[in-house]
Simulated assay, not measured.
Amino acid sequence: MSETRYREPGASWVALLYGPAFAALGAVAELLTGAPVHVVAWVLVGLGLAAITAPWIYARRRFLTVRVTSSALWQGREEVPLSSIAEVTDVGAPAGARVLGGGWSAPRKYDELPVRLDDGSVVLAWAKDGQALRAAIEDVKGWSA
């Protein structure tokens, strides 16, 4: 197994707690206003919100995770061996460059990082912090930043 040098998870499982926290606040609000507390309803609301949040988190973690190991760059479920990366600095992105990870474009709110491969083609990598991704690739490849 390769050592992970850089990682951006697509989402955190902590978001699963937002629904139950909202339900708890609703129950506390009922308690403080003197209204009858609908415990069963608030438990169902909390569980329901957690249930619809879980697939969203799973999908984001599966398709939006960025990882650089000592041997590969992972963009979602796509792996690019670091040995096939020729350049990450001062690479222009031509129109229609393939986006790593299988999307039509880089995910919203993510920085694009044009990457030249050893066959001369240019692909678009993406990360929340594009500079950190570039630095991690340069570090693993032994290039000076």
Rank of each mutant, 00 (worst) to 15 (best):
E138F: 06
S70V: 03
Y18T: 13
P94G: 01
A106I: 06
S84M: 13
T65A: 05
S2E: 10
A72H: 14
G103T: 01
E138W: 02
A23N: 04
R62W: 10
V66N: 12
A106M: 03
G96T: 03
S2M: 05
E79H: 12
K141P: 14
V99S: 04
R67G: 00
A54N: 01
L32C: 13
L133F: 01
A51N: 08
W104P: 08
E79S: 15
P9F: 12
A72Q: 13
E112C: 11
V91G: 05
A127D: 04
W74Y: 14
R98P: 06
R67F: 03
E30C: 12
K141N: 12
A24H: 10
Y18I: 13
S12K: 14
G130L: 00
L133H: 00
S2L: 01
P94Y: 03
L117Q: 05
K128F: 11
S105E: 10
A15S: 08
P114Y: 01
S71V: 15
G92C: 06
A93S: 10
R116V: 06
R7A: 07
Y6V: 05
G102R: 06
V91K: 13
A127K: 02
V80E: 08
I85Y: 02
W56I: 05
S83H: 11
E138P: 03
A24F: 08
R60G: 04
S83A: 15
D90T: 02
A136D: 01
R67L: 07
G96Q: 03
W13S: 12
H38E: 13
L17P: 01
V91C: 07
Q131H: 14
S12F: 10
A35C: 07
L64V: 11
A106E: 07
R60V: 00
W13V: 14
E79Q: 15
Q131F: 10
V99E: 01
E8P: 00
F22R: 03
A93Q: 01
S105Q: 12
L16S: 06
I85D: 03
G46D: 09
L49H: 07
D90L: 13
W42P: 01
E8K: 02
L117I: 00
G48N: 06
V140H: 00
R5W: 06
V14P: 04
T53M: 15
D119S: 04
E30W: 12
P114Q: 06
G96N: 10
A95H: 07
A50Y: 04
S2P: 10
A136C: 00
E8V: 01
A93K: 00
A93F: 02
V66C: 11
H38S: 15
G130R: 04
D119V: 01
